[in-house]
Design a binder for these strands. Structure first.
Length: 621
RNA sequence: CGCGGGGUGGAGCAGCGGCAGCUCGUGUGGCUCAUAACCACAAGGUCGCAGGUUCGAGUCCUGCCCCCGCAACCA
């Protein structure tokens, strides 16, 4: 990347050598709409993907809904729906949340897809054959009446130590860690029925066997954030075999030939199969959208294709230990090094977004959903908030006040207002056109400003590449501020009255700056960047959006995909062509100012309407 | 001594060995093209507490206090 000099800023950047970049987004659990915490932890993935596309890289961004597991079965029961119908509904809700936010997935599928089932079963049987998975026995809790198997957290009873009421995994009164089998008079939290425990046979992933390799890999990966790295190494040092099957009927069945004795209702446990989704979704994407069904290997088995994983911090161990452990074991079975599956490079994890005193999660009452705020403030204000004020390095408390401040006093005051005043000046004094000038008319101050925009591409890009998203966005805002100062210093509204040619030069520089800034902002604020781009008279698409698409018509199985080919090779300074007619933005403003009281009122109204409305698809309490 | 993250002006954060910074808010002034927006200047901090290392410490070490997450059947 060149250093900007005092020469004209029209130096061509070195053409960026395209890389294949995989962006792997943690699979949202399919039990209901996404809340703000989910949005905050997954949005950085979209910034990474959009930035890399803009740079010219070939991005493959995949994810899907994680639809198996007990919580979904229970939620479906409550809703009075077959589980499959229930998760089809939540998948649609989550797809809409992501579409609304503008998450530019290449493929957003479901763990209930055939490809996923086959891939997960294939990996399972390979690992069994290679002795990385072995049979063993485990004590399981069963509802005595319904025969439903129950995870620890659904079992409660009297604490054997302090004799107060305790949940299966921990006593909230005396804080003892419990084994649910020790509880006195255990009952199901769901039905109140008595719970009994029996030994049943299960498959275990022999994590201890891959631990040395996992530790070695952890130590050698210098892109992992130090917090994730240290805690993961400590955890890896005490890995034990872990059961990866469950007694239930909802899930991926064990592959043929691997059934356990006398059992026909064992399924793969969600945490084992869900992480495989990254791979299976890539395979499914290739099969459905590419000429070459093996195209996924250009990301997964390519030594020059870095990958980025995005998730909340609770998910880190699955991506630093379990998934790498599985991949390491699989790679040991590959004869050809060229078939090695790539382990995680960058784990961009966030901390938690909290709300008041309660964790903002779907398992508690205090929740604000992504869709609520999308309706009230729109996608880009929410995206701005997530990146500028989100829990990037520490837990952060959400507040309407902070959202309002960030939107009104930063996003709108700096960037939105810059766009407004520019269009207004062009309209008033320059026939609603970008003035035409020749570049050698530029003054030193003009070049200086344009150079600062030129270097903003580098600064913002570097920060994104270092996972410093809020810093990157701040740099973009600073670049916009420089343009505001330039306008103030040059007073084009005054100059236009006496010397229109001079004013044209100034306004050309401003329009040119905005044109470039819309590209710089596009990974963060794709919706508004696209509108500004069009308002400047262009008709191409610099920030595409995902669309829902029914895979096999009639199956009710839909995925998100998108065509982002026109978003590529934009991440560099360019001169705006003069003379093009601008189009005023509908309503005059790209961003709508937030009235904090109104925001709270609107939220209350939506929240109440939701509680009164159909509860069938509500997340479980 | 289970593991880890965080505690920096009113708010949100950066800095992680060399004169305490940024954004917002606040005050004053300027500007009036612009969504009471924009521009300039100013006030405001003994960098959680206590020791230590060092010519020099938010920055390294030790102890303590507070907040948060994880602790593997919460996926």
């Amino acid at each position: 990347m060149e250093t900007p000099t005092d020469s004209a800023p029209d130096v061509e950047l070195q053409p960026h050598e395209s890389q294949n970049v995989a962006v792997l987004v943690a699979w949202p659990y399919g039990n209901g709409p996404r809340h703000l915490g989910h949005g905050a932890s997954l949005l950085p993935a979209d910034v990474i993907a959009r930035y890399h596309r803009s740079k010219g890289d070939n991005v493959l961004m995949v994810s899907g809904t994680d639809e198996h597991g007990t919580p979904n079965v229970i939620a479906a029961e409550k809703a009075g729906l077959p589980v499959r119908d229930y998760v089809t509904g939540t998948n649609e809700i989550i797809r809409n949340d992501f579409t609304g936010l503008g998450m530019s997935f290449d493929w957003f599928t479901r763990t209930t897809s055939k490809t996923h089932e086959r891939t997960a079963q294939g990996i399972f049987s390979q690992l069994v054959d290679a002795d990385y998975i072995a049979k063993g026995e485990m004590l399981g809790a069963f509802d005595e009446d319904t025969e439903q198997s129950l995870p620890d957290r659904y079992v409660e009873g009297e604490c054997p130590y302090c004799h107060s009421c305790a949940r299966g995994d921990q006593c909230e009164s005396c804080n003892s860690l419990l084994d649910p089998a020790d509880l006195i008079n255990p009952v199901s939290k769901l039905t109140g029925n008595a719970v009994s425990f029996r030994q049943t046979e299960h498959y275990f992933l022999l994590l201890d066997k891959v631990a040395p390799d996992v530790i070695e890999w952890l130590k050698s990966n210098d892109k992992l954030r130090s917090n994730a790295k240290a805690s993961s190494i400590a955890m890896a040092e005490q890995l034990r075999p872990r059961a990866i099957t469950r007694d239930m009927s909802w899930g991926i069945p064990l592959p043929e030939g691997y059934e356990l004795e006398g059992e026909n209702h064992k399924v793969l446990y969600v945490w084992f199969e869900a992480v495989i989704g990254y791979l299976s979704a890539s395979i499914e994407w290739a099969k459905n959208t590419q000429d070459d069904p093996n195209a996924w290997k250009q990301w997964w088995s390519n030594p020059n294709a870095p990958n980025y994983y995005a998730m909340g911090k609770d998910n880190v161990p699955f991506h630093t230990i379990i998934w790498p452990g599985m991949l390491l074991a699989l790679n040991k079975l590959k004869e050809d090094r060229e078939d090695y599956l790539r382990l995680p490079d960058v784990i961009a994890s966030t901390e938690y977004l909290t709300f008041g005193d309660d964790k903002l999660s779907s398992s508690r009452g205090n929740v604000i959903y992504v869709s609520d705020l999308l309706r009230i403030v729109g996608p880009d204000a929410l995206r701005y908030y997530f990146i500028a004020a989100g829990p990037e390095t520490k837990d952060t408390t959400f507040s309407f006040h902070e959202l309002t401040k960030r939107t009104n006093d930063e996003l709108i005051a700096k960037w939105g207002n810059l766009v407004s005043r520019t269009f207004s000046l062009l309209n008033k004094n320059h026939d609603g056109k970008v003035p035409e000038i020749s570049l050698h008319e530029l003054h030193d101050a003009d070049r200086e400003l344009l150079n600062s925009i030129h270097s903003a591409f580098a600064t913002v890009g570097e920060n994104i590449e270092r996972n410093k998203f809020s810093q990157a966005l701040k740099s973009a805002i600073e670049a916009a501020s420089a343009v505001n100062k330039y306008i103030y210093d040059n007073e084009p509204w005054k100059v236009a009255k006496t010397d229109l040619k001079e004013a044209s030069r100034i306004m050309y520089v401003v329009a040119n700056a905005i044109d470039n800034l819309s590209v710089i902002f596009s990974p963060f604020l794709p919706h508004s960047s696209q509108r500004i781009h069009q308002a400047l008279g262009y008709d191409d698409v610099i920030a595409s959006q995902p669309v829902s698409y029914e895979l096999d018509p009639g199956t009710n199985f839909s995925v998100l995909k998108g065509d982002y080919s026109s978003n590529k090779h934009l991440w560099h300074y360019r001169h705006t062509r003069g003379g093009q007619k601008i189009h005023m933005i509908e309503g005059g403003h790209i961003f709508k100012k937030i009235d904090e009281e109104e925001l709270q009122r609107d939220f209350q109204a939506i929240s109440q309407a939701r509680q009164l409305g159909n509860t069938a698809l509500q997340p479980d309490k």
